[in-house]
Design a protein around this nucleic acid. Sequence first.
DNA 1: CTAGGTGCTAGACCGAGGTCTAGGTCAACG
DNA 2: CGTTGACCTAGACCTCGGTCTAGCACCTAG
Lengths: 135, 135
Amino acid sequence: MIQKMETADLSIGEVARRTGLSVHTLRLYEREGLLAGEVRRDEKGRRLYSEWDVEWLANCVKFRSSGMPLATISRLARLVREGTGNEAERLELLCEHQHRIADQLAQLHACLDLINNKVAAYQRHLAIGASGDPW
Amino acid sequence: MIQKMETADLSIGEVARRTGLSVHTLRLYEREGLLAGEVRRDEKGRRLYSEWDVEWLANCVKFRSSGMPLATISRLARLVREGTGNEAERLELLCEHQHRIADQLAQLHACLDLINNKVAAYQRHLAIGASGDPW
DNA sequence: CTAGGTGCTAGACCGAGGTCTAGGTCAACG
DNA sequence: CGTTGACCTAGACCTCGGTCTAGCACCTAG
């Protein structure tokens, strides 16, 4: 009984505040098919979002911040929208992104190594006035 | 005596192959001031790169892959080009990027958590046919 | 009544980072 | 000799992901 009751509808402005996305971006995301639930409208044509949409959008934000292109999120959303039966495809898509994240982590660590070394070198340099590195 | 001798000049095509950047991109980077060494030219106006330039460009590639904007690399390159005396500024710039990398790592890990959970859920689902998740 | 606030659509615009084209010079090959 | 290939410049073009504008509808408060 704590399931889905009293899920008051949310306006686009509400959702913008909760997700940190602009209303423009929310409309863009909808056009691009990123939403996994159909967006309902009130009598006057205004969008009505559910709490679940907000959760989904929060995931979208995470996906975006890890570099997943809108097109990919859109594909995932379509699979979810289509309902049960395509879990294998969703899994594949997620695993691909897992790997891209792993790649990014590796690259970030590589760059971080480089920077850490340089930072240490410059700190030494500024403290002692030594070294004479390439840069 | 193992310092800088026999540093044969490299053509832009050479450098492209070694750095993985296109010749177009190399020219772009030069226009944008990303190079820390002045690019020499031969009699006929063709660019001459040194091994050192290639190393610097390799660093640029790392910076880029960690999301450093061209403008920032350009600032760093300018500092390096200007020579000794501005190490504090270089350090500051590098430390800022250190923090941005830390942020990115956090975001990537957050997304990875989400995806790992979903992947595990779907694998369970496909193996047993269970669950009934939100998605 | 009117001013503000929120919403709608369609479509223009923007910055970042490349990528590609046109039109030209040069050297080497067959 | 003509062709091929590497290089040059200036500048057009492209994708991505937003962001913003115009012009309109509606509701509420003063």
